[in-house]
């Protein structure tokens, strides 16, 4: 998509500046998750015909994966459920330029994984589920990312 690379590079600079100013990016991640999860009705209506599950975690995660593909944010996603953990394999993420830019400056990868963010919003929007933490890594050559979303049941 035209302008995507420029959008991604600007996004990288934005996140870099936030981090440089001292804001912990996992803190930013958690706050966005909490804010977006409260707005789940709007997101579901606007991007998924109001059919997004907020009662069943596995269905909610699948709905979000479908939405991410529909919106062309990723080419493909595989998903696996473990105890208190959702593992995702992402191919062709549209934010790959962010990871490339970050790695070119000696960083590990994307400052914040926006796909993991979407998945943690999906989990947090389900009643009785609290987001715990996230881990992710990118293989730029293969255009693949591995994400782990950890959550707790209350």
């Amino acid at each position: 998509m035209e302008g995507t690379k420029l959008r991604n590079i600007v996004l990288y600079y934005l996140l870099y500046a936030i981090k440089e100013l001292g804001i912990n990016l996992p803190l930013l991640f958690r706050r966005i998750t909490e804010t977006a999860a409260k707005d789940i009705e709007y997101i579901s209506k606007e991007f998924y015909g109001g059919k997004m599950s907020v009662t069943d975690l596995s269905q909610a995660a699948k709905d979000w994966c479908n939405m991410l593909k529909q919106e062309k944010l990723v080419e493909d996603i595989s998903i696996e459920f473990k105890d208190n953990e959702i593992d995702m394999g992402v191919s062709g993420c549209s934010y790959l330029d962010v990871a490339i830019k970050a790695k070119s400056r000696g960083e590990k990868g994307c400052p914040v994984c926006l796909i993991a963010l979407a998945a943690s919003v999906a989990a947090t929007a389900v009643s009785g589920i609290s987001f715990n933490a996230v881990e992710y890594s990118t293989n730029i050559d293969e255009k693949k990312c591995l994400l782990k979303i950890f959550y707790t049941k209350s």
């Binding site: 440089e20 100013l21 001292g22 804001i23 912990n24 803190l27 958690r30 706050r31 909490e34």
Partner: peptide, 16 residues
């Protein structure tokens, strides 16, 4: 939750 986020943020920025 908001107070926690802001306190963590204040600490992060002060550390920086």
């Amino acid at each position: 939750d908001l107070v926690a986020a802001m306190s963590a943020s204040a600490l992060n920025v002060s550390t920086r």
